[in-house]
Simulated scan of single mutants.
Amino acid sequence: MKKKWIAAGAAGIFLLSASAGVYAGNNLQQIKAFLDPSMKFLVNGKPFQPQNDKGAALAPISYNGSTYLPVRAISNALGVSIEYNGATNTVILGEKLAGVPIADSYGNSGSQRTKDPQSTSYNGKDYKDVHFNNLKGARSDGFMLYPKGKYQKLVLQTAAIGEDIEEFFVSDSDSDVRLKSDSIAVADGLKTYEIDISGYESLFVHAKIKDGGSFFVPLTTSYYK
């Protein structure tokens, strides 16, 4: 969904932020600019107050006929993920071109993560590292993911084995808001979900499994972007 900015008296908005960690060393140029705390902003028709990463209010900077706001404030307002690459001095907004496997941010206090080749294969393909719940009895299963607000999308692959999974969801663990709810049929095979996770720090993945059923999630081909 496209989102628009309405900024009274602004000649333009340029994204620049010390809060994103952008320091260019000798490339910095000193300028004379002015803070303008009187300027107001609307995002999709609603009032918006720019803030830094600690929640303190920020005033836009007016310089040479243009209005400057921190890039992190822009990303928060528009629901776009942000990351800073210090090695290349690059601010990354939105989706990354390459996916980042969820394996490194996977968290589960149980023993359902496995790299045992007898459990990591599905339909003839070995996924090497998976979440696989094949315990006995009807049960609830779940695990945590920690994207830490760095990514725009979660591409999650799942499969029901033996019995259909009638209840499956991914939620924001802080607010319990469900970002995706569905059922997974055995006949679906390996099912792929693309879920908007912009700005979310931690996620909870849940499945309600029937007796005789298993829940399979490859951690190598499920990824953030």
Rank of each mutant, 00 (worst) to 15 (best):
P47E: 13
Y200W: 02
Y200H: 10
G99T: 09
M144E: 03
Y84S: 08
L179I: 13
F204N: 12
G213F: 06
V91H: 04
L190R: 06
S62C: 03
S19L: 02
A11Q: 12
E167L: 11
S175E: 07
M1S: 12
K136L: 11
K128Q: 15
I6W: 03
I61C: 00
K128L: 15
G99W: 08
V91A: 11
S171D: 12
K54W: 09
F169A: 02
N123V: 10
T220H: 08
I31E: 04
N27S: 13
F204K: 07
P47D: 13
S81R: 03
V155F: 10
D164M: 03
S175D: 07
K153R: 13
Y63Q: 00
Y63V: 07
A7N: 05
L203T: 08
Y84L: 10
D196V: 08
K128Y: 12
K40R: 15
Q51V: 15
I82Y: 07
K136M: 07
T88Y: 10
V91C: 04
S38N: 09
S19C: 05
G142D: 11
F132Q: 01
G99C: 10
S173Q: 13
K40N: 13
A159H: 08
D126C: 06
I13K: 00
D188A: 08
T192A: 11
L156G: 03
R113P: 02
L135M: 03
D53N: 04
K3M: 10
D182H: 05
D36N: 14
V217E: 02
A185D: 01
V217P: 00
K115Q: 14
R139A: 09
